[in-house]
Simulated assay, not measured.
Amino acid sequence: MSADLHLGPPAADLHRDSVVADAHNDLLMAVTARPPRRWASFFRERWLPQLVEGGVNVQVLPVFVDDAYRPEGALRQTLRMIECAHVLAEGNADAVRLCLDGTQVDEALAEGRIALVLAMESMPGLDSAVELVPTLHRLGVRVASIAHWGRTALADGSGEDATGSRLTAAGVETLREMERLGIVFDVSHLGASGVEHVLELAARPVMATHSSARALRDHHRNLTDEQLRGVAATGGVVCVNFLAALLSADPAEYTLDRLVDHIEHVAGVAGIDHVGLGPDFIREVMHDVKPPCCEDDYGIDAFAAVPGLAGPGGLPLVTEALLKHGFADEEITKIIGGNVHRFFRAELGRPGDR
């Protein structure tokens, strides 16, 4: 943990002694952009020090295929990113382990290694080929969503909320296949009607890997109180997104306090056992792989970060802020990783009962 953070002993000790889980970091995009011979070493040089500095014990690695690869190159890029995850894990086996189930997560933590969990953010390379979901499972994918901003063959993303559409027949079949295989269903980015549909159908717990509270920031990427309660009712976890644009429409509120407001709201609505962290540390990744830009569908700087939280190294600041806001130690331990760890221990890679 960096001394530059100037944390007091209570926060520093609590953070160090807790399991810290990040449910969404797009670092695979940045690593895969390098030549394959550099994948393992680039991760070790650029990202591993940040994860260690932030005290991260469990890291979800989403496979996100950017628009430039769609549609023709989507499957190829999906496979490249999955291969990259395996290569960086194998090349840094002293520090990380790609985990397929909760037992392996526990083993990695006991060995002092970071547990990596491979995820899919939408499935553009599969389209409606539900028969390939088991292939993803064989390749190590253990968390997945089925839409991003726009329309897919499986469902509409939250950017298409006006359509009021639910899951397609292939989307419903995909949900059932994921439940059968033990791939956790992720509702982040799914359109509002799609979320409702999933919550009606779900036979197993679902999670939101990186969504904040719509009651505090009325943005289609955030979840309503009804949706928060719905995810919790399945036994799932809502992991709060740190992106400043999803915390407030007012740049003056791009603060740690505002982030804690969202965490507090989700905990109050869904319950303290159903809230986690899904930081979405995208600024560095996007600056790494894209030309500079200043505005997109968020309507403001989409990559703006809360001061101190531009990357994983700032995660101890969240623990300190939660302490300052009066959260008890045991509540903070649940929020910063305990809930996600418990959820993964119970659900990750566990075959369904059907």
Rank of each mutant, 00 (worst) to 15 (best):
L5I: 14
A11L: 01
L14D: 01
S18L: 05
H24P: 08
M29N: 15
V31P: 00
P35L: 07
L51T: 01
E53V: 03
V58C: 06
L61G: 04
D66M: 13
R70T: 00
A74L: 00
T78D: 11
M81F: 07
C84F: 05
A85I: 02
V87E: 15
G102D: 11
V105W: 09
L109V: 11
A110M: 14
G112W: 01
G125P: 10
V130N: 03
V130C: 04
L132C: 07
V133P: 06
T135G: 12
R138G: 05
G140A: 04
I146R: 00
A162L: 13
S165V: 02
A170M: 11
M178V: 09
F185Y: 08
F185L: 06
D186K: 09
S188C: 03
H189T: 06
A192D: 11
S193V: 08
G194Y: 00
L199S: 08
E200C: 10
L201M: 14
A203W: 11
R204A: 09
R214L: 04
L216H: 12
D218G: 05
D225C: 10
Q227V: 01
R229A: 13
V231D: 00
V231Q: 04
N241P: 08
S248D: 11
A252I: 11
E253S: 14
R258F: 03
H262D: 10
A270S: 08
I272M: 15
G276S: 00
P279D: 03
V285I: 15
H287R: 14
E295P: 07
D297A: 15
A302E: 15
P312Q: 01
A321M: 00
L323A: 02
E331S: 12
T333F: 01
I336C: 04
A346Q: 12
E347V: 04
R350N: 03
G352P: 00
G352D: 00
